[in-house]
Design a protein around this nucleic acid. Structure first.
Lengths: 224, 224
DNA sequence: AAGCTACAGATACGGCGTAAGCCTGTCAAG
DNA sequence: CTTGACAGGCTTACGCCGTATCTGTAGCTT
C-alpha cells in the first residue's frame, strides 16, 4: 500500500470492528465518554458516521465492545499464594485498568449485557476463592458484598478536595452548618500519621475498604 | 389567553421551581430517567419546554434538584442507641428510598455538585460515628470505605437471575467455559439454609455486605 | 391610561442516533 | 474481456434532544 500522500491508488486500510472499537476507546480516553459520538468517531477514523454501521450494529454495540476491551486488559491472577493476597492483587490490578479508562466504570454500570470476557474475569475471581477454601455459598455472598469493587470501582460519592474551589465565605457557612463534616475535614488536612498511612490518597482509601471486606470474609471462612 | 377548558378565568396554577422538580421526579419514577426530556416534562405540566427555563437554569439544574428531593426523603437517624445499629438503620433507610427511585443512584453518581441536603445527610452519618467514639481519622477512612453504600446503592455488577433468559444451549456452553461461576450458581439455586438466610435476596445481600464493613470498622474502633 | 414586569409560547439552531438508498472499486464466474 | 455480485464506503433525511432568542400577553404599579 502506498502512503497517504496523494495521487496513486492510495487505498485506506479497511475498517473493521476491532479498529472501530479501539478508536472508540482511545477517543473516550482522550476526550471523555460524553464526546464519543458516531460522527466524531467516524471523523477519528477518516470516515463518515454511517460507515461505522457496516462494522458494528449500533452505538450500544460499540459500548459493549469497549467494555470488553477494557475488562480484557485486566491481568488475571496467577493462582498461587494464599487467596487473600491473590484476591487483593487481582482487584487492585483491575483498579489500575479502570483508573486508566475513567469512563469505563460508568459505561459498565449502565450496561446489562454480560460479555464472555466479563464472565471470564468473574470466573477467575470465584476460582481464587474456591482455591482458598470458601464454600460456594459464602463465595456467592462475597461476590455481592464486593460488588463493583471487584472491578476496582472506588464508588466514591465525592472528592474531599471539592472544598478547594469554594469562596471563603461559602466555606465558612458550610463549616457552621455541618459541624461533623467540618471537624472531619479539618482533621484530615492537619493530620500527619494516621491509621492507614497519611492524607487522603484514593488508592490508599480503596485498599483500606477492600481489606476491610476481605478480612471480614476471611474471618467468616475460617470459622465456617 | 383562555384556559384549555374555555370561558371562565380559570387560571392555571403558576409554575415554580418546586413543581417542576417534583414533576421531574415523578416522571422519572414512572417512565425512567432516560425518558425525562425538557419537552416531555413540559407536556407533563401542560406547558412548552422553553417555559421551564423561567424556573430552572437548565437540565443539569433539574437533575441536581431531583437529587436534592430524593436525598431529602431519607429519614435521618434519631441519634440514640449504639452507633452500629444507628448506622445500619440509617443506611438501610437510605436504601429504601433509593429502591423507590431506581434512577437516583445513576444520577447521583453522574453529578459532582454537592448540595446542602447531601451535606446534611453526610454530616448526620459522621455524627453517628463521632457519638460512637470513632476518631475523626478513622471516620474519614470509614466514609471512603462505605462510599456510595452510604446512600444505599447496592453497586451490583449483575443480576444472578440473568441466566434465566438464555437459550439452553447457550447456558450449556457457558457452564462448560466458566466452571467456577457455574458451580456457584448451581449451589445457589439448590441451597436451602445458607450462611445469611436463604436464596438471593437483594436486601439480604446488601445487609450482608454492609455488616461486613460495619463490623470491621467496629473492630478497628475498639482496638484503637 | 401607561408602562413595567413576569411568565408562557413560537421559532430556530446545531448535535445526536440511525433508517434507507446510492455509488464505486474489486474480484470471480462465464 | 465482460459481467454481475458484493463489500464498504457516502449522502440524505427523520425525529429526537437541549436551549438561545424573540414575541405576546396578563396583571400590577404609578
Amino acid at each position: 500500500m502506498t502512503p497517504p500522500t496523494a495521487s496513486s491508488p492510495e487505498r485506506r486500510k479497511p475498517l473493521n470492528r476491532d479498529r472501530v472499537l479501539r478508536a472508540a476507546v482511545s477517543l473516550a480516553d482522550r476526550s471523555g465518554i460524553e464526546s464519543l459520538s458516531m460522527r466524531k468517531l467516524g471523523q477519528e477514523l477518516g470516515v463518515e458516521a454511517m460507515s461505522l454501521y457496516k462494522h458494528v450494529a449500533n452505538k450500544e454495540d460499540i459500548l459493549d465492545g469497549m467494555v470488553d476491551i477494557v475488562v480484557g486488559e485486566i491481568e488475571v491472577s496467577s493462582g498461587d499464594g494464599d487467596w487473600l493476597t491473590a484476591m487483593r492483587e487481582q482487584i487492585i490490578s483491575a483498579r489500575d485498568v479502570m483508573q486508566y479508562h475513567p469512563w469505563a466504570s460508568g459505561v459498565i454500570e449502565s450496561r446489562t449485557l454480560i460479555t464472555p470476557t466479563m464472565m471470564a474475569y468473574m470466573d477467575s475471581v470465584v476460582g481464587i476463592m474456591r482455591d482458598g477454601g470458601f464454600s460456594l455459598d459464602l463465595i456467592h455472598h462475597a461476590m455481592h458484598a464486593l460488588g463493583s469493587r471487584l472491578l476496582g470501582f472506588s464508588q466514591q460519592l465525592f472528592d474531599d478536595s471539592d472544598d478547594a474551589d469554594m469562596t471563603p465565605e461559602a466555606k465558612e457557612a458550610m463549616l457552621a452548618q455541618f459541624p461533623n463534616i467540618s471537624a472531619m475535614l479539618d482533621e484530615i488536612t492537619h493530620e500527619e500519621g494516621t491509621v492507614v498511612g497519611k492524607g487522603c490518597d484514593d488508592r490508599i482509601e480503596f485498599v483500606f475498604g477492600l481489606d476491610l471486606i476481605l478480612n471480614g470474609l476471611e474471618a467468616k471462612r475460617s470459622t465456617a
